[in-house]
Write a protein that binds this DNA or RNA. Structure first.
Lengths: 69, 69
DNA sequence: CATATATTACCGTTTTAACGGTAAAATTAC
DNA sequence: GTAATTTTACCGTTAAAACGGTAATATATG
């Protein structure tokens, strides 16, 4: 799953946003954006989703059973 | 990102596990497994990761910028 | 270099997810 | 069909994430 925190950071930079701006766009707190970029895994899934949506990042789940659910 | 809840449910069934057994294997509460399968997005990211690890499901993040981070 | 901006870090309060217990509904097994 | 198991649902308590404020460090800009 690589480094989500770094990916978020890179995309945010590319979009020319500060952590605070991204937080506001995602409707979450600045501290949470910071935590996500630091790969803190105890954050709420919904908060990660909000950030990914703003940055236009998609999520995919895969397995050997390769379910096309 | 498709239906994570359904994917977890299918994989769990395939593994012959009950929600309670999966919860124990993942080291989380049964209620949380239930919530994940119901696509409740307010669950902790770390709890989702624990479940995915048990079921051998991988996560991928993608974007138009296709960062190979 | 100095200044401005952004990031990192810590803290206290508030909000809320996690959890197990329990019971009802649904599913499966006999 | 009935019985056993599993899933769904609700609840109260406990633990912890979310949050904004603030300050210190780091980075960028002049």
């Amino acid at each position: 799953m690589v480094d989500l925190g770094l990916m978020v950071k890179n995309h945010r930079k590319k979009a020319g946003l500060t952590q605070l701006e991204l937080a506001n766009l995602a409707g979450i707190g600045k501290t949470t954006v910071f935590d996500i970029e630091k790969n803190k895994e105890t954050v709420r899934w919904s908060n990660i989703l909000s950030v990914l949506q703003v940055l236009n990042i998609k999520v995919e789940f895969k397995s050997p059973l390769t379910e096309n659910v």
